[in-house]
Design a protein around this nucleic acid. Structure first.
Lengths: 217, 217
DNA sequence: GCGCAATGTAGACAGTGTCAAGATGCTCTG
DNA sequence: CAGAGCATCTTGACACTGTCTACATTGCGC
């Protein structure tokens, strides 16, 4: 019984006053939120299944009734990340399908990189080897993950059909290449390699310029 | 004494016949090699300090006389990776400082991505958040890491001074942007995201084309 | 109201990184 | 050649991890 350390935490995580009576109520989604929070605040090393359970005031093994294992839990977090990611990207000018201007590419690039940098705890899982290399992505995660890229590819195809992108450009290749660039910028920024966060703006501008030239706008 | 499992390994790792007598002889470098091998064969999860020690037939804590902790060991592996990386890149046509052609950029890109894909166990450490985020890179690793990029930047500056790259291009920005692209391609390939290894060649070709246009060759 | 499925719990096991204390043997100085 | 000093290696211990098994409690549908 010595583990009710929850009462010692400064701000109890929004439990509705009725303290809790054996059954938690909404453990699954609270696990996902707490996991993301721990990752953000303390990095990968700060997240353990046991710690997570303790933080939410349940026993060590309770989370296993909602996620088969740690891997599944992380897939769940990544999935939530993709939902937020798609929402951000879909608000981009790029989806408007009018005239394709360099500004639109810049806006998209900026949104992409900003999301990655400001939601690194999600981005790391969404586009990191940790989950993908395991070759065991949740089916729902796979769906969500590919949808993001497919939507982007759809934009490119749309613009090409409207004659806004040279017909000599292979849409898939163009999409992969520009996505790679944005991914590379994001990764270097997040990990603090060769790039400082002060240059985000300029990197995105130059990247968009490069994309535009490649598309022969 | 039951831990001399080394004799049970199929191919003893090139020990000079004189089996070993308390002192190992060259543990440090064997640790680095074995660590890279384990990472390659079994991934990050397959590498533990204890496993490493057992594999080399020494006690669990012996490695700690050569590396302060696991982190330092990994820094050592990454450093070796950078040495190999620089060697590969320096053989590129890009270093020749004659006329800059798209072919040179393609050759460089190809070498970069090929190294990353075929030496993923090194690349992951060299350019992964695992070490960089810790903010505690070994001094010698930092040196080696920045040297790689500085050499590349040097190539770009050299070509610009020879009038091979438009003076409107900021060399640092161009270097960062193209490096980001190559990094992004490599990461997506290694992690198996959106890119299949069959398209390596074409991605590199298209990337070089894009770089060349940006440089206004 | 009852039974079952969902959800919670404690106990145990093998594995991890790493610290502290002690054993061994190479090397160099006297 | 003796022996001191030091690098190296060893065993023991600790706190932590993910996850398995077995058991307890509860809410919901009949």
């Amino acid at each position: 019984m010595s583990k009710l350390t929850k009462s010692s935490s400064v701000a109890p995580p929004s439990v509705p006053a009725t303290a809790r009576s054996y059954h938690h109520g909404d453990l699954r989604s609270e696990l996902l939120d707490a996991a993301a929070r721990l990752l953000r605040e303390e990095g990968e090393a700060g997240l353990s299944m046991r710690r997570l359970a303790q933080e939410l005031g349940v026993s060590r093994t309770a989370p296993y009734h909602h996620f088969a294992d740690k891997h599944s839990l992380l897939c769940g977090v990544a999935e939530e990340g993709f939902r937020r990611f798609r929402r951000v990207l879909s608000e981009s000018e790029l989806g408007l399908h009018g005239v394709l201007r360099e500004d639109s590419l810049r806006d998209f690039s900026r949104r992409y990189v900003d999301f990655a940098v400001n939601n690194a705890e999600y981005y790391d899982l969404m586009f990191g080897g940790k989950l993908w290399k395991s070759q065991a992505l949740t089916e729902s995660l796979k769906t969500e993950a590919y949808r993001a890229f497919r939507e982007y590819l759809g934009y490119i195809r749309g613009y090409q059909q409207q004659g806004q992108i040279s017909s000599e450009v292979a849409p898939l290749r163009f999409a992969q290449l520009s996505w790679s660039t944005l991914h590379g910028i994001s990764r270097l920024l997040i990990d603090g390699i060769y790039l400082e966060s002060e240059v985000v703006e300029e990197m995105c501008r130059t990247a968009a310029e490069m994309f535009a030239r490649q598309a022969r706008l």
